[in-house]
Amino acid sequence: MAILQAIGLVKRFDDHVVLNGVDLTIETGGTLVIMGPSGCGKTTLIRCLNLLERPDQGQILFHGESVLSKEIDIRLYRRKIGFVFQHFALYSHLSALDNITLALRKLQGYGREQANELARRELAYFDLSAHEHKFPAQLSGGQKQRVALARALVMQPEIVILDEPTSALDPLMSQEVSLLIKKLEARNITTVCVTHDIAFADQISQNVVFMFQGKIIAQGSVADLAKASAIPEMNWFFGKKRYE
């Protein structure tokens, strides 16, 4: 069943068309990877999905209902979509624990004790219990990412979107991220992951869409996409990435 659908999304920045009619269906459960070269529009697409950018044309349906209609409370919708930013975007004046509890306390009305308890559960889940009082500047890249993920998950979202989760990490940490994404699957959370890392994409999902110049031009497993020799841009992308 489709949880989130983009239909004919168009997004322009001045004269530059970044999304040029994107159609995408995200099914409940599992992991969808959005892949493509830099500048193909994949980050803009996920920003549109979370309404951080408003598309110029097209429709976004959440459980079949348009989220672009004026009757929809955008903030309530956003709470159902966990978003993990490329550089984690943790609140630098708050400890790891407070980063996770802030939205619980201020948006969902939890008391501090109750919020702390929920946050500590997430911290334990991501092996971060020893770091709860540390501030973002005291955490490694991998720890920051896990805090960002815990911050998203504590809100019990229906979908988690990760923007380039391995770009700021070394190869070993990238392996760890793929394990984290498997953990999300185990919790039955629909995951959307943007990346241009072919090996990483192959590790986390067999459902990959390939974007090029603002359009989705193919969908399948990494192996399928790599074999799709009819599309020259994809040959270039996979060939270049493989033999560089």
Partner: peptide
């Protein structure tokens, strides 16, 4: 760091 502001908006603030 302005990305924090965007993260807060994305959380629903």
């Amino acid at each position: 760091d302005k990305s924090q502001l965007e993260a807060a908006v994305a959380q629903g603030f």
